[in-house]
Write a protein that binds this DNA or RNA. Structure first.
Lengths: 348, 348
DNA sequence: CTGAAAGCGCTAACAC
DNA sequence: GTGTTAGCGCTTTCAG
């Protein structure tokens, strides 16, 4: 055992064994019409016997195609992204593409590095969701100049033309806040992520719009930016809680931010939804198991992933005729146990 | 705009521009000691100006190394795996490796297909967590015969020698069930996943061992196999609930299985932990936000991922002297709001 | 139907 | 220091 560090066998190896040429073998293996079925059978049989595995590196170099697409996401341990990626992977598989995945960890430097590597690997297309801190878009322009198809999803650069698949962030935020207002809440705060990122910007815009429409004042000290993760929610709540005047409701820009609020509130001995209430945007399957179960806007993660891949595929297939395109998939309100003030009134 | 479908520029392009040879450029770009710093500077400067991006496909073919490692996991939208993968990715980045990720969707056929693709891509090593349905290990033997280093993590093949990183499934299950028994529970069921998978087998073995040690009978009808996902927990609970004699406690083999129980119990109008109680193995950051918060064995997902990569790296670096190795990282009991019978007694 | 020649873009010897 | 010569393993013309 151990002895057989067998060198990878090549087309030549099996050609020699059959006393035919490399080319014949190559064609036979790819079921090329040139080759007689007898030859094909022979070739395939000893290829199997020898345990031949084609060298994709060589194949790709020669064929100038990698059948590979690059994926860049800010985070993985986040239900929304995990779900997106899962659907991207299965869509890719269905179309015979492989995925090279990279995680930027919300760090723009990693993001750039990864994109460069992916470009060097000659991926045929790129699927990107940018970090919460990406403000320099020059890499993205670079990619475009190179002619490599890109589709952004969920978190996209603003102010430049892109292919993208997103949810209706602003409109959905409006719907959510309208629901909150109708439920009887008046003092509403927003933990807003970063407004230089589209999702932060749009959701905040929706928040403001809904308040204005509901004749409620917009209080600057109740709009707190700081990021999209658990820590951001935690910090923001701690910051908010030192003041006397607590809002009745907080609209968290993401599910992790909402979790951060839960954590901080627990530490401070404040009860949700009695002392302060929470709704959020996006998230996943766990909302309904939370205590209390969150009321939230449910992002169609699977759809976003799948559509993003399909959009990329479209461009891959018709690079010439292709025109830039944005797809918007609406989110849906899911009512849980938070944001129930209206019920309380009813009971009284 | 659009016009500059600029062909990728190559070493030759920049060599010609500088009237030096390809080789010089190649070396200069890789900071080879052969080259004078003047030349290097010149080369690097116009490489940058031209927007040169090395072609890794060509590089890898020539250098016979891909700096790439293949990852195969059964599922992504599962906190344990997402966390594992995140740590694998960052460990890989730190060592200048790229990750080609594939998701088998708990389907052994996909698993095989992905492994073959990865092998064809000439990944330098493989990190695998097998599906709950993998029973045919011939692919794994194949890989070994090829001499490609593999490390399995969490879900590993049983009965063959492997490099692997796992948690102390059996011992941890014993600790968990001992805790349950000490808390005063006597009628304990187990939703056991599949016993042909190591985690299912070992956890069930721990369960049995602890019952026996506690002088409790092992009731076959209270050990239900069926998978590691939410659906499995849901189905098992529905199946169990039609009988009159309900256990006081269910030990779920994974966190998703526990969620499935929550779901089914809710539908049936049964309260956790009062009507039936639940503990589980593994999971993630959400346990404490559940209602009720679960008591569970916490798997060190991040550590498992990181160590798995490091183990692979070891073998990659010293393929000759390398000996097969298994690493076990213990799980830790986290006490939540389920499994609190003992408290109830205390209060009485 | 089959094969010989050329080359994908790069790197590793070895000379100069 | 720099360049020349050979490939890496495969596919694509284009003759036979």
């Amino acid at each position: 055992m151990g002895a057989t560090k067998n060198k990878n066998i090549t087309l030549d190896d099996i050609a020699r064994r059959l006393k035919v040429s490399k080319v014949t073998v190559s064609k036979a293996l790819r079921d090329h019409p040139d080759i007689s079925s007898t030859t094909k059978r022979e070739v395939q049989s000893i290829a199997a016997k020898l345990g031949y595995v084609p060298n994709l590196i060589a194949r790709n170099l020669s064929a100038k195609s990698s059948r590979t697409i690059g994926l860049v996401v800010p985070k993985l341990a986040h239900h929304f992204f995990a779900t997106c990626i899962e659907s991207i992977c299965s869509a890719a598989n269905a179309s015979q593409y492989d995925i090279v995945m990279t995680v930027s960890q919300e760090n723009p430097e990693n993001e750039i590095k990864h994109i460069q590597t992916l470009l060097a690997m000659r991926v045929e297309g790129l699927l990107i969701s940018i970090t919460g801190n990406t403000t320099d878009y020059s890499v993205f322009k670079d990619i475009k100049k190179r002619g490599v198809p890109v589709v952004f999803f969920d978190r996209i650069p603003v102010g430049i033309e892109t292919n993208h698949v997103i949810t209706d962030d602003r409109a959905a935020a409006v719907r959510l806040i309208e629901f909150v207002i109708q439920a009887g809440y008046r003092k509403i705060a927003h933990f807003a992520g970063y407004s230089h990122t589209n999702i932060g910007y749009e959701r905040q815009a929706g928040f403001r719009q809904a308040l204005t429409a509901g004749n409620l004042p917009i209080r600057a000290e109740w709009i707190i930016e700081g990021g999209f993760g658990e820590q951001a929610g935690y910090d923001a709540f701690k910051k908010l809680a030192v003041r006397k005047d607590l809002p009745e409701m907080i609209f968290a820009v993401t599910f992790p931010v909402a979790l951060g609020i839960f954590e901080a509130a627990r530490e401070l001995g404040l009860k949700i939804p009695d002392d302060v209430d929470v709704v959020c945007f996006g998230g996943g399957q766990f909302h309904r198991y939370l205590s209390p179960a969150l009321t939230f806007m449910n992002q169609p993660a699977s759809d976003i992933g799948e559509q993003a891949f399909n959009l990329l595929l479209e461009e891959l297939r018709a690079p010439e005729t292709y025109a830039q395109k944005g797809i918007v998939i609406p989110s849906q309100l899911v009512i849980g146990e938070t944001c129930r003030k209206i019920k309380v009134y009813n009971k009284k």
